[in-house]
Write a protein that binds this DNA or RNA. Structure first.
Length: 918
RNA sequence: GGGCGAUUAGCUCAGGGGUAGAGCGCCACGUUGACAUCGUGGAGGUCGCAGGUUCGAAACCCGCAUCGCCCACCA
């Protein structure tokens, strides 16, 4: 074995072997276990969020596979309609072309081509993480099979009246030229203005003042609303306004929506371009005047002078014109929420168009019930509140998008604009009895990407065909995802799963946090603070990192700043940490909080942990060569480490059951480093290296070394698959375990052996003994190599027996030169002291130890214990405590007081002795 | 406006009615036969603030402050 762990040499070779041998495919006839991967964008690259989610899912998958489950982790990718289309359009633009130049068919071909080019990338990156997904079942949301599922769902929902087409106000993205769902619109506060305009009354006498943040929309006004009980305006309701510039007569209406306290209490109504106005407009039969084109430039319904103007240009023009007319009352600075498309960042326009909708209420009701009844459990539980909050206020889902990349809507129109929905044109003709003489053309629109994602838990398993896979793996066990897509995806899968499979798509939803940069900022390209999981695995030099972070920037002016920050934060680039260290870090950070700051210190620490494990394995291998099956005897240390291992195994199982992977990793780390390496390996050395220990004892220790290591590797494997496989291949045979791969070995279970408490207590005693000496050594500046004579005072029979029995350990590990007993009537020598209960360890000074230093040390210890004693005594002096606290607690407190007093007495006595010496 | 969360060691975070924890960092010492990617010892905290419940609160309850997120939204 290499002297240190070199991940790069191992990982890719090991993964290739797993994949070639088909280890990721479900096997056996154990209980079913299934996780559906949240499909990443097919043209995307792996980011920290994927790394995190994949790590959690892989740990769960490997754990259950090792527990004997017939396990499927279903992989695949999403066509990501808007995102992908935008990327390809940008590529085209760089070539000086637009998608319109190409035409729909050519463009879609081009996207497929791009998908083929880049589509494998994220899958390759997922492999680098060690993800044990079943690649043979990899799916893509636009595969033929999944597309069939989409059509099936659409047709069935339509036939049931749960999908309808309607002309309504939608969120329109004037840059991408498509409708968006409510979820794809992000509102943020931006600074603007509030304009107050005078609208003259048609009677010729006076005016009303209305306020608006969007002056240009006044060209589409079809009313002015006041509150019904507003006495200032009551007499005007029913009268008319002459809309300035346009000259249209529009009514003054009364509607309770209006807040009389705000502004003047008069609101201009633009029902075709504002969601609230639309509602009111519908109630009052106001005219819906669409003043925009698809680009959000003014159309021909407005006065000629304004036609063709962009909305923001029009805003200035309208304001100027009203001012010229003397109708501008005032302008105030005003901060308001501006809705923008989540992809294009263009200001979204409420726009009247024909779109397809899913009638959501009938689907939402059982989906709410599924969570309320506990059929689906959120982890952490809190997220169910978020889910309910949204589901109770859910609106019909706009599913049509005016894009070219996606699932084309299976609807056809005849020349009279009648709609027919079916699987394909032939089906439509059959279904509706339409002859070949009638021309049909298919709807131009595609479906929202999330429509196909919503079917993922069953479409990937072959639905609507009745497949074995569906029987096997629906419903899945757990969905692992970030909270940002609970609405987009989780809720919709639940609705569709219940609707079409008659059962929920998964039993549990594990929601994890967002990975943030070290300073708590969101990682983003424009901030230049992105960490690429692959760079953490492979390492990257500074120049490459700078180039990567500053290239392809949307805003070039940020580049120098990013370069500077990057050079400061990573003067030497990023080290190679390996996939195991990265995964372990993710798992260790998977706490219940919302966001996770990625800490480079942690990954470095866990890389060291890999190295620690590697070297522990080297030690074990060096010492177990030629281990035979002869008779074995076990030392107390052997029995102790097995008991500790059992405890760790049990804890890890419990933590998995609660999805507390952070605690699971912590348990393993603690056991591996601080029990197995720090103590057991050290305690094994005297046995293996000593001539006195018999062959049987040595064999027992060697056997224990290799068996504990082999078990530990299996326990750790879900988190660190590569290094554990690599070591296991060399260790397994010696441990008497045979198999092709650690992946398919059983997960460790506690041995079920009753704990040998005598052995465990002995070793704890030995540890305390050695720790006491080390403390003296450390604080007294005694060279660690210097063997110390130790005098035992107040040694019980048990102490004496232990000292004899474990003399070898004390000598070799504790560097004890000799152990002698002090008789009750003997004067103790001047010595440094450590306490082990009643037992006093004395290290005679003999010029070794500085008296003043030891006095200072004892004084410090006494102070510390006195503080504790005072507190405990305070409690016991309190009658209320003594009378009310449980007896066990009181008793415990009394015991502590006795211990403290004894300790202080012993230390004080020792201090006295040193004082007399002076 | 409604909802959710956070506030614990220098940093990143666990914990949770009865003794304040980890990793990293820091200080000192160390070429001990796995490992200097290491070992040994050490320093370091009034658990955001103020009330309440309790014999006992860092933990439970109420309020406040600061930070963050989600949803809705007054033109």
């Amino acid at each position: 074995m290499e002297k240190s762990y070199q991940p790069s040499e191992i990982e890719q070779r090991v993964y290739a072997r797993w994949e070639e041998n088909g280890y990721f495919t479900p096997r056996g006839d154990g209980e079913r276990y299934c996780i559906m991967i949240p499909p990443p964008n097919v043209t995307g690259t792996l980011h920290m969020g994927h790394g995190f989610g994949d790590t959690i899912q892989d740990a769960l998958t490997r754990y259950h596979r090792m527990r004997g489950c017939r396990t499927l982790w279903q992989p695949g990718t999403d066509h990501a309609g808007i995102a992908t289309q935008m990327v390809v359009e940008r590529l085209l633009n760089a070539e000086g072309q637009s998608r319109r130049d190409l035409g729909r068919e050519k463009f879609v071909e081009r996207v497929w081509q791009w998908k083929e080019e880049s589509g494998g990338k994220i899958s390759q990156q997922t492999r680098r993480l060690g993800a044990s997904v079943d690649w043979t079942r990899e799916r893509f949301t636009m595969d033929e099979g999944l597309s069939a599922a989409v059509r099936e769902v659409f047709v069935r929902l339509y036939d049931e009246g749960l999908i309808y087409r309607g002309k309504r106000l939608v969120n329109w993205d004037p840059v991408l030229h498509t409708a968006l769902s409510d979820l794809e619109v992000l509102s943020a506060e931006e600074e603007g203005h509030l304009w107050h305009f005078r609208y003259p009354l048609a009677s010729g006498e006076g005016h009303l003042v209305v306020a608006t943040t969007r002056p240009e929309t006044m060209l589409g006004d079809s009313g002015v609303a006041v509150h019904p009980e507003d006495e200032r305006y009551g007499h005007l309701v029913g009268q008319e306004i002459v809309l300035p510039i346009v000259g249209r007569r529009i009514p003054i209406i009364a509607d309770p929506y209006v807040d009389p306290e705000f502004g003047t209490g008069c609101v201009k109504m633009t029902p075709a371009h504002d969601f609230n106005d639309y509602e009111i407009g519908v109630r009052h039969g106001l005219e819906m005047i669409n003043i925009f084109t698809d680009d959000a430039t003014l159309n021909d319904t407005v006065p000629e002078a304004f036609r063709g103007l962009d909305r923001f240009v029009a805003r200035k023009a309208v304001t100027a014109e009203l001012e010229r007319l003397g109708l501008l009352d005032k302008v105030e600075p005003y901060t308001t929420k501006i809705p923008r498309g989540d992809r294009s960042h263009a200001v979204v326009e409420p726009y009247l168009t024909d779109q397809w909708y899913v009638k959501i209420e009938p689907l939402a009701t059982p989906a709410i019930e599924a969570v309320a009844s506990g059929k689906i459990r959120f982890v952490p539980e809190n997220w169910s509140k978020t889910y309910f909050e949204w589901m109770h206020n859910i609106q019909d889902w706009c599913i049509s998008r005016q894009l070219w990349w996606g699932h084309r809507i299976p609807a056809w129109y005849d020349d009279d604009a009648n709609v027919y929905v079916g699987y394909d044109e032939a089906d439509v003709r059959r279904k509706y009895g339409i002859g070949d003489d009638v021309a049909l053309r298919q709807d131009e629109d595609v479906l929202d990407t999330w429509f196909s994602s919503a079917l993922w838990p069953f479409s990937t398993l072959g639905w609507p065909e009745k497949t074995e896979a569906l029987d096997d793996f629906y419903p899945g066990n757990v969905l692992v995802t970030g909270f940002d897509i609970i609405f987009f995806w989780v809720a919709r899968m639940i609705m569709m799963g219940i609707k079409f499979m008659g059962d929920v798509p998964f039993r549990e939803v594990y929601i994890h946090g967002l990975i943030r940069a070290e300073d708590g900022q969101k990682m983003s390209k424009s901030k230049g603070n992105i960490l690429d999981p692959l760079d953490l695995i492979d390492g990257i030099d500074l120049e490459s990192l700078v180039a990567k972070r500053t290239s392809g920037m949307m805003q070039d002016h940020l580049a120098p700043r990013i370069e500077e920050d990057t050079r400061r934060q990573f003067p030497d680039g990023i080290d190679q940490f390996g996939a195991d260290a990265l995964r372990f870090t993710f798992a260790a950070l998977a706490t219940t909080g919302r966001d996770i700051r990625f800490d480079l210190g942690r990954i470095e620490g866990y890389k060291n942990f890999c190295n620690k494990l590697w070297n522990a394995a080297r030690y074990v291998l060096m010492n177990t060569e030629g281990l035979d099956g002869g008779p074995s005897e076990f030392t107390a240390a052997d029995l102790w480490i097995k008991a500790r291992l059992d405890a760790a195994v049990n804890a890890v199982h419990a933590h998995f059951a609660n999805y507390r992977l952070d605690l699971a990793t912590q348990t393993i780390y603690e056991f591996t480093w601080h029990e197995f390496c720090d103590w057991y390996l050290e305690l094994s050395k005297p046995v293996l290296q000593s001539e006195e220990a018999g062959a049987a004892l040595q064999r027992g220790t060697r056997r224990t070394l290799v068996e504990v290591l082999e078990t530990l590797l299996r326990l750790l494997h879900p988190f660190m698959p590569f290094i554990t496989e690599e070591i296991w291949q060399q260790v397994a045979d010696r441990a008497g375990v045979h198999g092709e791969t650690i992946m398919l070995q059983p997960c460790p279970e506690a041995s079920g052996n009753t704990v040998d408490t005598e052995a465990v207590d002995d070793i704890e005693w030995v540890k305390q003994f050695i720790l006491g000496l080390r403390q003296i050594r450390g604080e007294m500046d005694i060279p660690p190599g210097k063997a110390l004579p130790v005098v035992l005072q107040h040694a019980s029979e048990l102490d004496q027996r232990r000292a004899e029995r474990h003399a070898l350990l004390l000598t070799r590990v504790g560097r004890v030169e000799s152990v002698s007993l002090l008789g009750d009537d003997e004067q103790p020598p001047a010595a440094a002291t450590a306490l082990l209960g009643d037992l006093r360890l004395l290290v005679p000074m003999k010029g070794l130890i500085d008296v003043d230093a030891e006095k200072a040390r004892l004084g410090k210890q006494i102070d510390k214990v006195r503080g504790e004693l005072a507190r405990a005594n305070g409690k016991l002096a309190n009658d209320k405590f003594v009378n009310n606290a449980p007896a066990a607690v009181v008793e415990q407190e009394q015991t502590r007081v006795r211990d403290f007093e004894r300790t202080i007495a012993q230390l004080a006595e020792q201090l006295d002795k040193l004082d007399q010496l002076a």
